[in-house]
Design a protein around this nucleic acid. Structure first.
Length: 933
DNA sequence: ACGCTCACG
DNA sequence: GACGTACGTGAGCGTA
């Protein structure tokens, strides 16, 4: 090939590679390669942009020479000048890191020169090349919108903002900086840059900087004559920070005289070689792009195999489960071998064995690891020696275990290493156990959450279920190891030899599940749900659960006593009425007394042959007899005492003095969380007596509890999804939504609204969310069924979008077997086509799921964004109750917290879902949860 | 282990 | 035309 000397008539294009990559990364959802789940979204976007760029390069401005310039390494000569340079930079996203080398490969595949130099930023290389091109008499176009490059513009060098498709010349730079390119560095030196952490002069921005530079000519003149500045503050700033400003100039000034190991001539534009490009695109499995480019180059399109994952991945089936292959690691040398192996892989499945099920109290007993199917180990750490009945043998450790601290010290760097992916099944549990030992496990993948993203509504997501369904393997049961009932023991009492196969197998199963799920995730189109609404929730919940909430034992204890006394009084009255003692808490005994002995009407037996004595039944009976009311009162006290005032005390953690719930991410099929051990999502509020239990949930001294809750979020989402103009308008106007519904339905003007009519409309509004039926509404409102049906007909008539939504949703569910939230979460509805009453349940659940699920997605997104939004506020997020978040805040920061957290919550749908109805959040605060709400 | 009842959104 | 029915949870208790 003949080489053209670079000179007049030549045109060099320089592409800012990092800018391309980050734009590609953020513009696309987290796509993964189908065959193996490799994150590939940024590479895909990068290739598309590169291709579009090449395609658009025709006409007089087409390049004769071109290169993509990348940054290399994070340490540059600027860090030696100023150690804080770019120190604020957020770490590269986990799923982007492995894509960086692929973007270089992509560039070469397109036959475009690809340059990077250790210790220099791409900007310096670009500067050097631009200056060389200018000196040689050619033109240069820099494809970037980075303002740091604007100092290069002029005299044949222009910039091109590919995003806005706009050229930036000398005038464009003046527009941006208020000075021409040769003075841009001076302005930047004064204004500083928070993104790159260039200090500049405090209090001086671009506007002021340009003003000063234009007045004094240049930075040196300005600093020399700073004393002449009239404004005292500005003058002081410039005099006091002169050194810092000069340093800033050195930081922003690009090095345009580097020694480059290549020449301009090496960058000559070349046609892509289909022999190189096509295989690359095929390897990346970019189906559309491969097809398009093959057509343009007029070559045959390579075959991209549709590698089906799951059961027919042969590699997975080829390795049978074999307990004999599991390794017992008992010393540092063996552990080091495993750690080295993990580093060569970049990922590892991890499982912990502990002394219990509560991750706030259980102790670590051992750790298992797995790097590939069948290759797993168990590291026992605190198994106890079998000591028989000897009381003193309890603390003796079993043989074959390495020292606890030594093991953790070795594992910690790996578990915390951002380049090693830790895979777990319900990682929140293991992460919390390890967090209590001062190990912050990250980054993580979680097979339970992957299954949830793909299979919610289909089946559970426990390891046993998943292993049987997706690996065809029944795991070793834990029961025989631990025993049950009186002879039950904890895992530390299990002999090491028995523990190894059980524990190692769990890690083996987890790794295999991950291999199966990773490609399926993308195929099910739930990668975004998993990556943005499941995986990032784990560290957030870990933080909340570990924080816990302070609960005042004395308050609960006093309430328990008061409830006891009242119950005793009621019991006396009840026995008096009945004529003998019996167990008031036994629905069976009560039913017989009410309906057989006393002969009250309305007794209905359920399928177990027992009378129903639920609250609604007793409520009806209360009008004709005095007993049911007493029982109702007794029951409500009994509930408050046993479930709350008594049980909560037992949940106060001995170490922290606080109550730590555990959230289940996969508990509810709709995307809601559930709370257990204890459940803090059902603390009483509806009755005054119950509400007072919230007084026991308190803030620490000097702190305040702040409750933020979404106002009518489900109805707002319904108004949006079902597209009900009247509802939307009412929310936009801030009207009372139930009163508006009532007015619309019953033709009652708003100013004549009665509480009773409003109450009925409210019941209908909620009924709609639940998949309304005449029967259900009738029972709820205690009105004849025909009347209830009339209300519903009327409602549909006035808001026809509701009926359409319900019908469409049912049709979609029948066709696809699932329904979706606005954010793409899938909720499966396997019973939708069933015969019999199941079908009714399934269709109402299908109607409710997108509404409840979308609301759940919104608050999940808010929670995930919360930690970074409040990181500078002395506040902790403690609890989530479906549409409410509870915080504990230092007294002085309450307003800051409310401002920041409310903003996050009200915009949590953005940017991927636009709502026609705005989300509103109400705030409350106080020393206890009753006051805060 | 299971159903009933009832606490919450 | 009949059949059952509001959606989603977790916990304590009685009873098998």
């Amino acid at each position: 090939m003949s080489e053209t000397q670079f000179g007049t008539g030549c045109h060099l294009h320089l592409i800012d590679g990092s800018a391309f990559i980050f734009r590609a990364y953020h513009a696309l959802p987290p796509l993964t390669r189908k065959s193996d789940g490799l994150p590939i979204g940024a590479v895909a976007g990068f290739c598309n942009m590169l291709h579009r760029y090449v395609e658009g390069n025709t006409g007089p401005d087409a390049p004769t020479h071109v290169a993509v310039i990348f940054d290399k390494g994070s340490h540059t000569f600027r860090n030696d000048m100023y150690d804080q340079y770019k120190a604020n930079r957020e770490a590269m996203p986990e799923d982007l890191r492995p894509q960086m080398p692929l973007t270089r490969e992509a560039t070469k595949a397109f036959n475009i020169a690809c340059e990077e130099i250790e210790g220099f930023e791409a900007d310096d290389i670009i500067a050097t090349l631009a200056v060389q091109a200018r000196k040689a008499g050619g033109k240069c176009t820099i494809i970037s919108s980075d303002k740091d490059l604007m100092q290069l513009v002029g005299d044949g060098v222009v910039m091109h903002d590919a995003m806005k498709n706009k050229h930036i010349d000398r005038e464009g730079v003046f527009e941006k900086f208020g000075v021409y390119p040769e003075r841009v560095v001076d302005v930047q030196a004064l204004a500083g840059d928070s993104v790159d952490n260039v200090p500049g002069a405090p209090g001086i921005g671009i506007k002021t900087a340009a003003l000063l530079i234009n007045e004094y000519g240049d930075l040196d003149a300005l600093l020399e004559r700073a004393g002449e500045i009239k404004q005292p503050k500005r003058r002081e700033t410039l005099i006091n920070h002169a050194d810092q400003i000069r340093l800033s100039r050195d930081l922003v000034k690009l090095d345009d005289a580097m020694d480059l190991p290549f020449r301009l001539e090496d960058l000559e534009v070349l046609d892509p070689d289909p022999e190189v490009l096509m295989p690359f695109l095929a390897e990346m499995e970019f189906r559309t792009l491969t097809k398009r480019i093959a057509a343009q180059l007029n070559v045959e399109e390579p075959v991209i195999e549709d590698k089906a994952p799951a059961s027919d991945v042969p590699a997975l089936e080829a390795v049978p489960f074999d307990q004999a292959t599991y390794e017992h690691v008992s010393d540092a040398a063996a552990l080091q071998t495993w750690i080295d192996l993990i580093y060569t892989r970049g990922y590892v499945a991890v499982d912990t064995e502990t002394t219990g099920l509560n991750d706030m109290t259980a102790d670590l007993v051992g750790v298992s690891l797995c790097v590939e199917a069948g290759h797993a180990c168990y590291i026992p750490l605190s198994h106890k020696a079998a000591g028989g009945d000897d009381l003193f043998s309890d603390d003796t450790l079993a043989d074959g275990q390495m020292p606890f601290d030594q093991c953790l010290k070795m594992l910690k760097p790996m578990l915390e290493d951002p380049s090693i992916l830790k895979i777990g099944q319900n990682m929140k549990y293991d992460a919390k156990i390890l967090a209590r030992l001062n190990i912050d496990v990250a980054p993580i993948d979680d097979t339970m959450l992957m299954s949830y993203a793909m299979h919610a509504g289909l089946h559970g997501h426990g390891m046993d279920t998943l292993s049987e369904r997706y690996l065809g393997h029944t795991p070793i049961p834990i029961k025989p190891l631990l025993g049950s009932g009186k002879s039950a023991r904890t895992f530390d009492a299990v002999p090491v030899a028995e523990a190894v196969p059980y524990a190692a197998e769990d890690a083996d199963i987890t790794l295999r599940l991950w291999q199966v799920f990773k490609p399926l995730l993308h195929q099910s189109q739930v990668t975004r749900v998993y990556e943005t609404m499941e995986r990032p929730l784990v560290p957030v919940l870990t933080g909340m659960e570990r924080s816990g909430i302070k609960v005042d034992r004395d308050t609960l204890s006093r309430m328990s006593n008061a409830f006891s006394q009242k119950m005793a009084g009621l019991e006396d009255e009840i026995y008096e009425i009945v004529g003998r003692k019996f167990n008031v808490g036994s629905p069976a005994q009560l039913g017989e007394i009410l309906f057989d002995e006393m002969g009250l009407e309305g007794g209905k037996k359920g399928k177990t042959g027992k009378y129903s004595t639920g609250a609604d039944v007793l409520e009806d009976l209360a009008t004709e007899h005095e007993l049911p009311r007493r029982v109702l009162d007794w029951r409500s006290l009994s509930k408050l005492k046993s479930t709350y005032t008594d049980a909560l005390q037992t949940h106060i953690n001995a170490e922290t003095g606080r109550v730590h719930t555990s959230y289940s991410i996969t508990g509810a099929s709709t995307g809601r969380l559930s709370s257990n051990d204890p459940n803090l999502q059902n603390i009483p509020i509806r009755s005054e007596e119950g509400r007072r239990i919230r007084e026991a949930f308190v803030a620490e001294q000097g702190k305040t509890l702040v409750a933020l809750d979404y106002s009518q979020i489900e109805l707002r989402i319904l108004a949006h999804i079902a597209n009900i103009p009247a509802l939307k308008q009412a929310f936009a106007d801030g009207h009372d939504i139930h009163a508006m519904t009532a007015s619309e339905m019953f033709d009652v003007p708003l100013d004549e609204m009665t509480p009773d009519i409003r109450r009925q409309a409210k019941a209908i509004n909620f009924g709609v969310i639940y998949g309304i039926s005449g029967f259900g509404l009738a029972r709820n409102l205690r009105i004849p069924r025909s009347e209830a049906q009339g209300f519903i007909d009327r409602y549909f008539e006035r808001f026809p979008g509701i009926r359409t939504y319900m019908d469409d949703t049912k049709t979609f569910a029948k066709e696809h077997g699932y329904v979706q939230t606005l954010f793409g979460r899938k909720i499966h509805t396997p019973n939708i086509g069933a015969k019999g009453p199941q079908a009714g349940f399934a269709s109402r659940a299908a109607i409710n799921a997108p509404i409840q699920g979308t609301a759940a997605d919104v608050i999940r997104r808010a929670m995930i964004r919360m930690p970074s939004a409040i990181k500078n506020i002395p506040a902790q997020m403690l609890l989530q109750v479906h549409d409410e978040l509870l915080f504990e805040v230092e007294d002085s920061a309450v307003d800051d917290l409310i401002g920041a957290a409310k903003d996050v919550m009200e915009n949590a749908n953005e940017p991927i879902v636009k709502l026609d109805v705005k989300l509103t959040v109400d705030a409350g605060q106080g020393n206890n949860w009753a006051e805060a709400h």
